[in-house]
Each structure stands twice: as C-alpha cells, then as structure tokens.
Design a protein around this nucleic acid. Structure first.
Lengths: 257, 257
DNA sequence: CCAAGTTGTATATTGATCTAGACAAGTAGA
DNA sequence: TCTACTTGTCTAGATCAATATACAACTTGG
C-alpha cells in the first residue's frame, strides 16, 4: 500500500502532510494498543516516501508533544482523543467540557473598553460607536490550550463584568452578579481557517494547523442580546457538536469512518 | 507595514501562506471597488517577501479561479462571498442556499447497498451488519462544487430511495414518496480537516484547502432516525450558521473583523 | 508618442526539502 | 550472548522555494 493521499509541489512540505496524516491516523487506530506507532520504515513505505521524511514528521509531532520516540523501542503516542464541545441553547465553556478532562479552566487574558464596530453593534442591537467592553479569554483543558475567545458586552449595561469575571472565573457567574439570572445561545455561526501567527502562539498549535471559529450571540431570557463572542478552537483538539434543543439525539457521539 | 503573519521553515511554503492570506484578505476589502488587487510590488512589501514569491501565490490563486492577472493592468478578483449554509431543525440543502446563488443543484453521484458499520448503525438505532443504502451526493452552486455528502438509510425501510432521489433530485421529495411526510435535524457534529486527495478533486479545491465536515442525524416526526449523513463542505466557499430553534436571532448574518 | 506603472520572463544564488545509502546505538527476545 | 529490529546520525546529491537583479511587454493617462 502506497501514497496515502500526499500531494507534491503544492507548497506544503511532505513531512508536514505526513505529520498531519499521522495525527489524524492516531484517532483512527494507527497506533497499537500500547500506543506504539508502526516503525519508521513501515510508515515510510505506507506514505510512499523516504524514511528521513517520516522522521521529519515524527520529529515535528514529538516537538508538539503528540509523540515520543525511544531509541531501540519505538515511537509512542502521548495524547489521544479530541474533546467534544457541545453547542446548544445552554452552551457554557466549563460545563461543556466537563468530565472529558481532569481540569478545565477559562481565564481572562485581557479586557478593554472600545467603541462598537458595525457588525458587533448590529449583532448586539446597539448603535455603532457605543462603548463596549471587550474580554479576551483562553480556555484550557488539563493545561493544554483549547480555545481563544473574544467577547463583547454593552459597557452601559455591564460596567462591572471584567471585574466580576476576573473574580469568579466564570462568565455565567459574572453575569449573575450583573443581574442576568440566566441566558441562552441564540445563534452560532461556524467557519474554519488556517491558524494565524497569534493563534499558533496562544493555542500552542502546529504551524499550518486549522482553527474552528464560532461567532455566537447570547441573549437573556427576554431575548435581549447581552454577549457577542468569537471563539477560536484548535481543530485538532476539539470538535463541535450541535444539539437541537427539543431532544438529545441517540447516537450523536459516535463517529463513522 | 511588514510581515503579515508569515512563518518560515514550518513546512508550509511562503507562497502558499500568502495565497491563503490573499484569499482571506479579499473577504475583508483587500481589493478595491473594481476588484483590483494592490500591485505585486506593494503586496510583496506588505508580506515582507520578494515579488516573485507573491507572484507564485497569485499564480496559484489564478489557477484556482480566484484571481485573474492582466499584463499592464493589474490583478483582479473573480469570486467573492462565501455562501451561508444554515443548520437547524429544518436543514435542507437547496432551500438553505436559496437566493444566494442563481442556481443550486444537489445530484446523486453514486449509490450502493452495504452492511452497516458500527457507528452508523448506532446512530440510526440499527444493528451493525443490517443492510443500508448509501448515497453519495454532490452539491453545487452556480456550477461550482460546494459540498460532498454521504448518506445512509435503512434498506429495509427505504428500499426505493435511490430511485426516488434520482428521479426527483431532492432528498425531501424522495422521502415523501417513501412515506416520510416530514423530518427534522436531530443533531449535527462539526469538525474541520485538511482536504484529502479525493476532496481536492471532487470539490475542485486548492491543495491544502480546508473542509468543514458535518455529521448529521435526521429523524422523522416520531423521533425515529431515518438518515445519517456526513457532508464535506469547501470551507473557503461556505460557512455554517447554527440556528437555535426558538427564535431567529437578530444579527447573526453579520461578520465582525 | 511618451512616461509611469503594471505584469511577464530570464538568470543566478542561497537555503529548505526530499531521496539514497550506510552505519551507530539502543532494546527485546531467543 | 547473539540476533533481529528499532531509532539516531552522517554524508551526498537532486529538486523545490525564496531572494536579488534586470529587462521585456503591455496599459493607461498625459
């Protein structure tokens, strides 16, 4: 068996394509039960390249923390499954990942006041130029960065939200302190892009990695928009699950080949 | 202004990063009102590279159909906006893209009977090994391929569905003929990956392009699963919008910078 | 027509990527 | 211990990617 879908001369080095291939392959049983990868020679044959090219890929993944090579023994997998991030009416960060990691955290990295740009204002039902509070946030699971989000709130309605968020470590808690008992996700738009330099740094991504981007609008129970946020997820560590509200579906956690 | 987020020595050629950068930049006003790109020298300076490197990027995008260069005049943009594909309880292909393109089509490329794999069976609430009908499909908008989907149906319940689909050109119509008056989307899982060789060919993608993948389960009005499908979207031509069921949100079509 | 600005082509040089082959160094099992 | 298998290192050459420089070909506006 040769050439598992590699493309030459397209601006992406073979070793990088192979690295991506191995990373994906791990999810679908490339490694054996002990987490041991096939030997380099075998991988080289499977991908139809020289062993050194495979070594470059493995080296990149090792540097990235996915693999670990041991001379004479083999190459072993370190991390495994992607986290499942549910999107629905009651989407919340920590609750969503609950149980899938030993420890999930959501921490504010910075906040600022700024005038509303046109699209954000329109989403929040405000006038462009009205003052907003912008909160930058990073979500981690077991110490590994998972997402990076930017949220906007009306500065008039929620002047104290950065302080409350910093203190409680939870948007939900902070909103309660600001008088919002509960809220719901009104809409979510999903797109995918290559990670830029900042993403790569902040999310500890492999260069050329993919990010999933959600643009979300949260409203209070009266349907009044209160939070607009854009979240960037590391696509190789997270997948999004959209839940329709009326019923939890039967088999939606499974993944077909 | 220099270096708009390029990374060297990471296995992705600069010209490809620049091509991706230009493609994105087009969406946010890189070209002027006539669709004319800044001259190559200016782009080279902005990206902090040699003019030839920019030319390689432009050449790739031209080959891809996004740009068109004219000697002495400049380089012009051909395609523009991404289609918006709504995901909600009543997700249907043609209806979803309605109005955004002159002509949308959904055509069956092949179909077959096969035993149910474990995950598909579990999603559909069947036993692994039961016979399924698999339908491969391609969605196009104005002749440009947009999505590629694989759907599975119970062969026992819907023996005539390939024939009905081929005749009507619509899953919804075909299901009506098979006795399903209406159906709803129970769950959707979204992930993102690099396009593989087949995607690149079938969707006419640029090498290294991104695809959005949805795994969806449709049920009839009794909640009985009837269709499981996996759809691959060209991420640079489509974005997904998740609609919560109770209300259509106010500003969810807008896109913040 | 002319000048300025643009894309197209050519050549040369340097570094990154990929291949090829050989052997060293470590591990595990017979 | 010995052998088979694995990862690690080294050298050499071929091809791709990026830079640098120069000039040709074409378009537009004066």
């Amino acid at each position: 068996m040769k050439r598992a879908g590699l493309q030459r001369g397209v601006g992406v080095a073979l070793w990088r394509q192979i690295a991506d291939g191995i990373r994906q392959g791990i999810a679908s049983g490339l490694a054996d039960q002990d987490g041991r990868l096939p030997p380099e020679n075998q991988l080289a044959e499977r991908f139809g390249v020289n062993r050194h090219t495979v070594r470059a890929a493995i080296s990149a993944l090792a540097h990235e923390g996915v693999l670990q090579s041991e001379q004479g023994r083999g190459t072993y997998v370190r991390r495994q499954k992607r986290l499942v991030y549910p999107i629905g009416e009651r989407t919340r960060f920590s609750a969503g990942l609950g149980g899938q990691a030993r420890e999930t955290r959501s921490e504010m990295t910075s906040h600022a006041r700024e005038p509303a740009s046109e699209p954000v204002a329109s989403a929040l039902g405000l006038q462009p130029g009205e003052t907003l509070i912008r909160i930058e946030n990073r979500g981690t699971a077991d110490g590994m960065p998972v997402s990076r989000s930017t949220s906007w709130f009306s500065a008039e309605r929620f002047p104290a939200i950065p302080e409350a968020y910093a203190r409680t470590g939870s948007i939900t808690e902070a909103l309660i302190e600001c008088g919002v008992e509960d809220y719901r996700r009104a809409s979510t738009r999903v797109e995918a892009r290559h990670a830029d330099e900042v993403d790569t740094r902040e999310l500890k991504l492999a260069p050329g990695a993919i990010i999933l981007i959600t643009h979300a609008l949260n409203t209070d129970l009266d349907g009044q928009p209160i939070q607009y946020s854009m979240t960037r997820f590391a696509a190789d560590r997270v997948e999004l699950v959209v839940e329709s509200s009326r019923s939890a579906a039967t088999g939606d956690q499974t993944r077909p080949a």
